[in-house]
């Protein structure tokens, strides 16, 4: 290995394992929601070249579809409410207004105002399935997204148009230094999300979720907007480059195989203690029972 960072230094383009990279370039075209999905489970895809090829083809079809789809339009026309915003408003008034109130103003005790939260927050909350909430509890759990990628884009457009706020990043979200990403992750993120993003418990039933299923954009927007109890990491605190480094580290380490065998959750001594008793000691006890049994 000659380069420090094979993820970012290698030329993108041909070859099955590069599939996800092609996706991240398309993020620039303004289709982040669709792009994010492709990253999911890319670990397995990388291993199987033809599956990756198939996915690349699917991805291409998906992008073409969304580009040609009439509802899809993100051109920055300030003249009036674009069609996407209108569709987003409609969705909002159907699904979100109960808690977040009319015109994103929020309802006391039910839901916060969404003015100024920006499309990044909408993307994170809706794409991870945290919103819409099923019920009020310590923490909104992530679940399969309720809205389609297209609907999420519409909601994002609506919220962004009314109060602004953090926007989605563009470009390759893994364009960052792996080692620096690791350092920053351990300094800022590992305290809650565990060494390599396996997640951890917080006080009174809250928790820092595992990053196992999180895609690049979700990780990025989570840092940018600080959902729920997570602190906000604004662009002046962690620069976009540093955020990309962190995304690169998290995703690279997540996808990398465990050289030492079965990873037992990568959480360290608790799992290892269970293994030595349930596997090691149990196997040996079985062994000495057998040795003691009469032939």
């Amino acid at each position: 290995m000659s380069t420090t960072n094979p993820q970012s230094d290698a030329p993108s383009g041909e070859g099955a394992p590069r599939g996800p990279r092609r996706w991240s370039r398309r993020v620039a075209d303004g289709s982040p929601a669709a792009a994010a999905r492709a990253r999911r489970r890319s670990k397995q895809r990388r291993r199987v070249a033809n599956v990756a090829g198939l996915m690349a083809a699917l991805v291409l079809t998906g992008t073409l579809y969304s580009a040609l789809s009439p509802a899809y339009a993100t051109d920055e026309s300030n003249t009036s409410e674009s069609s996407a915003e209108a569709a987003g408003r409609e969705l909002y008034e159907r699904s979100c207004i109960t808690c977040h109130g009319e015109n994103l103003e929020g309802v006391p005790t039910r839901g916060p105002s969404l003015i100024g939260v920006g499309e990044a927050a909408v993307y994170f909350q809706v794409h991870t399935g945290r919103m819409p909430l099923v019920r009020q509890e310590a923490q909104g759990p992530d679940k399969p997204a309720v809205f389609s990628d297209e609907e999420i884009d519409q909601l994002m457009a609506y919220v962004q148009a009314n109060g602004g706020g953090p926007t989605l990043p563009s470009g390759d979200l893994r364009e960052g230094d792996l080692t620096e990403g690791g350092e920053l992750f351990r300094l800022n993120c590992a305290s809650c999300h565990n060494f390599v993003g396996e997640g951890g418990a917080l006080s009174s039933g809250k928790r820092a979720p595992s990053l196992e299923d999180a895609n690049d954009l979700e990780i990025y927007t989570a840092m940018l907007t600080g959902p729920e109890n997570m602190p906000v990491f604004g662009d002046n605190q962690l620069t976009p480059e540093e955020k990309r480094s962190i995304v690169n580290y998290v995703q690279t380490v997540k996808e990398q195989a465990d050289p030492g065998g079965f990873g037992v959750g990568r959480i360290g001594p608790v799992a290892e203690g269970v293994v030595i008793w349930v596997v090691g000691v149990a196997a040996l006890l079985f062994g000495i029972f057998w040795m003691g049994s009469k032939a």
């Binding site: 590992a190 305290s191 809650c192 565990n194 997640g199 959480i267 360290g268 001594p269 608790v270």
Partner: peptide, 10 residues
Amino acid sequence: QVSAASQPDW
């Protein structure tokens, strides 16, 4: 630096 769930061996 620290990680969540830092434990000693069993």
